[in-house]
Design a protein around this nucleic acid. Structure first.
Lengths: 342, 342
DNA sequence: ATGAAAGCGCTAACAG
DNA sequence: CTGTTAGCGCTTTCAT
């Protein structure tokens, strides 16, 4: 394995001291060196295909140009676009991304963060936040720069990039109301997450604002944002015997679970029951029926999260921003006017 | 920011020399130290919450316990499961994964690899291979351990984990033939990729083996594995006026593109034309119609790739394995008997 | 403007 | 068995 050239090699060829080379190679200190010499050193460096070893310099400077990204489950389709856009943004700034899939386990999450910290990451992007999240607390205590994405915590004021859930719920609810639905059920998510919690409360508030009476027994927060949780919850609702013509869900996977439950009972969507999702994950436009849902700008989420983190790495005292990006209602085939008067 | 404890801190508290601590902390050299002392040192280390700094030790040992994973596009649904399972396998072995999305650009791919090499990664998992791939060539020349996943190269003998495309095509073709299709079109992928190339040739061979006459003009290799490429290709086929009752595609995205083209013309699948995909990417079972396709064990692909790489990192002279995992035909709603005799 | 020397945290060859 | 010493590649005082 041909060994890479280092600063000493360049120094030898240029007939100068390694520290001089270091100064040339570092834009911030380049001006300390005579123009002519700098040019010569750069020429040699280029000729040798020199690349600074960020680990070695990081050892000295405590700056590794490395950022950790932790997500709960890469196979959940909302995360790939976030990770990709964050990674590319970081890459553009000369950083690399260490990716870890925590599998939603807090223990492994702690482990992961410890490991990353040991590697002197400059900051962390967390897509795993719970409303009360000891792991986030720890990061803050230890002063390691973090940005939360997709979800946030309830206690501290932490840099975060999230969707505007109030707006999303408002758009979905208005849509159903405008179609003529009067008996609307809601399937939400775990109240331990900011999205589950926020969307549920947004629903209550918006219903009130619209003067819409919701039946409390038709408002269920599922234990997980998953297809099975969605199916089971809708089954429960259907078994209750209560009448409703539409289900507003807090997540596309829940909505897909509703599809399953309906199909299993020989009901059809949207003829018997309208369904709305939340996220607009890839390919829901191709499903049967195409899902009416809220489009979240996942790419922008990732880009913004990366930018926020970079800003805080470069200036730890940068103001703590919490960005809420606006979702957009995408009307497709899973919602329609309720059939006949009930 | 509370600074982490290091080997010197432990040495001071234990009243020994740092190198002794190092020996204790390294399982391989632990036996050089007296049992009692080792226990004491470990106790102190634990008390301080010590964690070895892998960057510092890596600087000395040239081993960073870091692996780079490069993929062409994370938002292509085949990659997340591969990345996730590879990452978790690496994590289990004490390695971390640096993820980079090359956006399929060779230039940026080189950049990425250079950057990773500068960071002394122990090895690389590449999901980006072209049949002739200068980047792979470079890695081999430089002796950096690599494993290809999903696709492979045609020239060298390189460690790789791929799908058994011959088998996949055979299963799909037999399925269509058994349904009674006699005029079958094929939409393949770029011949610059091993999957595009291999599946096309597998088709030719299997047709011959089955004694099936394929019309050459109905066999098209699309310029990309994408929905638009699939739609455009099928449009061309349909415009040609040639008769066919089924389309065998080399990729799910191509198949979805076919759905679009059919729909735009008011044709329906499978009534007018049967379609098979390849990959069984997430949620194709929910599409309209549910896609008949070949399931590729993506998780296993990722796990095996990671294992192969770890084996080669630990022993660079380990035999070069090329694993072909068997796909499975999943029959769903996009294929049916051809309607009426043509 | 440049060189000398020390050190980031860790390991390894060499003594003893 | 354990301490000493040197050094991985780079940066950063401190001299000059």
């Amino acid at each position: 394995m041909k060994t890479r050239s280092n600063i000493k090699d360049i120094a030898r060829l240029a007939g100068v001291h390694p520290s001089t080379v270091s100064r040339v190679l570092n834009p911030a200190t380049r001006s300390m060196v005579s123009e002519a010499l700098a040019v010569e050193v750069l020429r040699i460096a280029d000729e040798l295909g020199y690349r600074r070893n960020p680990l070695a310099s990081g050892l000295r400077t405590r700056k590794t140009f490395t950022v950790g990204i932790i997500i709960p489950d890469l196979t959940n389709p909302v995360f790939p676009p976030i990770v990709r856009s964050a990674e590319q943004t970081l890459d553009g700034a000369g950083y690399i991304a260490i990716l870890a899939d925590s599998g939603s386990r807090e223990r492994s999450e702690r482990e992961i963060i410890e490991n990353m910290r040991a590697r002197d990451v400059d900051g962390l992007i967390l897509a795993t936040a719970m409303r009360r999240d000891p792991v986030v607390d720890t990061c803050i205590e230890q002063g390691i720069p973090i940005v939360l994405v997709n979800r946030t915590v309830s206690r501290h004021h932490v840099p975060a990039v999230v969707n505007d859930d109030e707006l999303g719920i408002e758009l979905a609810l208005k849509h159903l109301v405008e179609l003529g639905h009067e008996h609307i059920a809601y399937i939400g998510g775990p109240q331990s997450t900011s999205t589950g919690y926020g969307r549920y409360h947004a629903l209550l508030e918006n219903a009130e604002k619209l003067g819409l009476e919701l039946d409390n027994e038709l408002l269920i927060n599922a234990p997980a944002f998953s297809e099975t949780a969605g199916a089971e919850t809708l089954n429960g609702l259907l078994d209750s015997g209560k009448a409703f013509t539409a289900v507003l869900t807090a997540n596309d996977l829940l909505a897909l679970g509703c599809y399953d439950a309906l199909r299993a009972r020989g009901l059809s969507c949207p003829e018997d029951i309208s369904i709305t999702g939340f996220n607009d994950m890839p390919y829901v436009d191709r499903m049967d029926p195409p899902l009416t849902t809220l489009h979240i700008p996942h790419d922008a989420l990732g880009v913004k999260a990366a930018q926020l983190l970079l800003a805080r790495i470069e200036n730890p005292n940068a103001p703590i921003e919490e960005l809420r990006l606006a979702p957009e209602l995408i009307v497709r085939g899973s919602t329609a006017r309720p059939t006949i008067a009930s």
